[in-house]
Design a protein around this nucleic acid. Sequence first.
DNA 1: GAGAGTTACGCCTCACGTAAACATG
DNA 2: CATGTTTACGTGAGGCGTAACTCTC
Lengths: 305, 305
Amino acid sequence: MDPHLLTTFVTVARHGSFSAAASELGYTQSAISQQIAALEADLGLPLLRRRPVEPTPAGRRLLEHAEPLLLRLRAARADVLRTAAGPRHLLRLAATPLAVNPAVAARLARARARMPRLEVRLRTCRAERLAALVAEGHADLGLADGIAAPSDPLRLPDAGPMTTAGVTEEDLVVVLPSGHPLAGRASLRLADLIDARWLQTPLCPLARLRDLVGDGFPAGLAYEGDDVHTVLALAAAGHGLTLLPASAVPGGGITAVPVAAPRLVHRVELLHAALPPGAAAALAAALTLRPDTQDLERGIKDRSV
Amino acid sequence: MDPHLLTTFVTVARHGSFSAAASELGYTQSAISQQIAALEADLGLPLLRRRPVEPTPAGRRLLEHAEPLLLRLRAARADVLRTAAGPRHLLRLAATPLAVNPAVAARLARARARMPRLEVRLRTCRAERLAALVAEGHADLGLADGIAAPSDPLRLPDAGPMTTAGVTEEDLVVVLPSGHPLAGRASLRLADLIDARWLQTPLCPLARLRDLVGDGFPAGLAYEGDDVHTVLALAAAGHGLTLLPASAVPGGGITAVPVAAPRLVHRVELLHAALPPGAAAALAAALTLRPDTQDLERGIKDRSV
DNA sequence: GAGAGTTACGCCTCACGTAAACATG
DNA sequence: CATGTTTACGTGAGGCGTAACTCTC
């Protein structure tokens, strides 16, 4: 179970080919063959069926373990090295698309005003990659968003000892075409929409809704990107319903109806290494407003936690 | 970051001695010295200060990562091997002390009656070890308990892909000496007890209460064992308050007052490998009652999930 | 100076590359 | 038969043990 062999194994499985893995990893085919053979000998089980190359049941099981395992290994290395690294003038922020809402953007602006010498670089990424980016040290701070019960933490993939803190919680709305029969309602219960057609997008994963509310939520059109504008256009055209934070929905062609029950919120969380580099800690504190510092917020009803 | 070196590192750190680690691991002192040197060279950082041997800040950081990392590695191996192992006639169950409540015990009895050829071996262990036991394959099924908001999952340490399922949820009571001024109350709010003295025991970790309710809950006497009888005796004698599931509190010398707010329950969860060995899956199904099969339960008000 | 960690050095294992053999579509 | 994996074999790096060295209490 040498991580070296594990890396080779996942690479071979991903490519479905020994030789492709060999050229990616800079080995000869022969070496790859020997490494896989060594791993199989170690476990006493065949892990790959050859020609075509595909994992056996045991191999599939190992693949599920190997990826997070290797991530944690890289994360551990990055975290240890970070303790020794000097202070940085550059702060790298990673965020999921919906995480940078008006309140977060405003707090970030205020924090930057107070730290004029600090250079901030922001990038967006998919939710699944966010924890990995922070864990491996490719980002100093991460902003993740998701749907949760009020004041419940988000379920983030575990990539080792990290700190999370609530940043904002905001009401969720159902996005409807303006002509939709339900568009006139003052509020909606999700249970009543369980049989409606829903957009399938990473911005509002239906699997999460089923977790929180119950089975149902049949998938309509699947949009695999994470662009909010696109999702709004699709929702306006009636391709299906979707759930978004209230602040993300502009007027025009669409109607936003608050969700009455169950009580759910769009939550944004900050995550960073347990011992973040100096500037990151300061910025983290600025973003993570405590209730008593909730002062000049405008344009969004958020409840900090 | 070879796991081999990581193992050596944690062993050395635990013993505070190269030679002690050497004899535990079956190497010479020299080999240990070289392994630690190799690890330090790999990371480019000193990890241990010698004479006396103790971790540097970077070393402490690495230790936090290494232990769960090595656990997951062992867990992955065990899980892959389990997929290939044949069916077992012996089912090993591990449980925290409060997890085996009357409802769980009754369900277990009924399941065993239906599977007479199945041998079941039950052991209790501390909560922190439970996930590791199941992950590493030393137990087929684990029963964990803890305090949570209703229908919220427990926070269990992550030891890789595992399945959890709610088993029972039961009301919590505050355990008071019979003569206690609050003993006459029909119910109590935890917020009102935030300044009272609390027993410090793994059965009712004060840290968890602070998570759920807020700061406070000053620690009184610390009992490091997990024997329910002992805790009850300490509570009866007025050493401090504690929270237990209603079914764990007998009469005599003590009074149990239900918790009114916040709404919290004592929850029991079952955890097992994603692909449990055959008999384990059957027993898991028997323990994890769905609402419609809640029938002959007696002696305890539990709400299955 | 005794106990405990490090360094020097030789041995042996093991992992890689080359190249030939082999399987499979 | 072509493509791609396995096997055989030689080589080199690296990890371990022995033993001499060095540091610190």
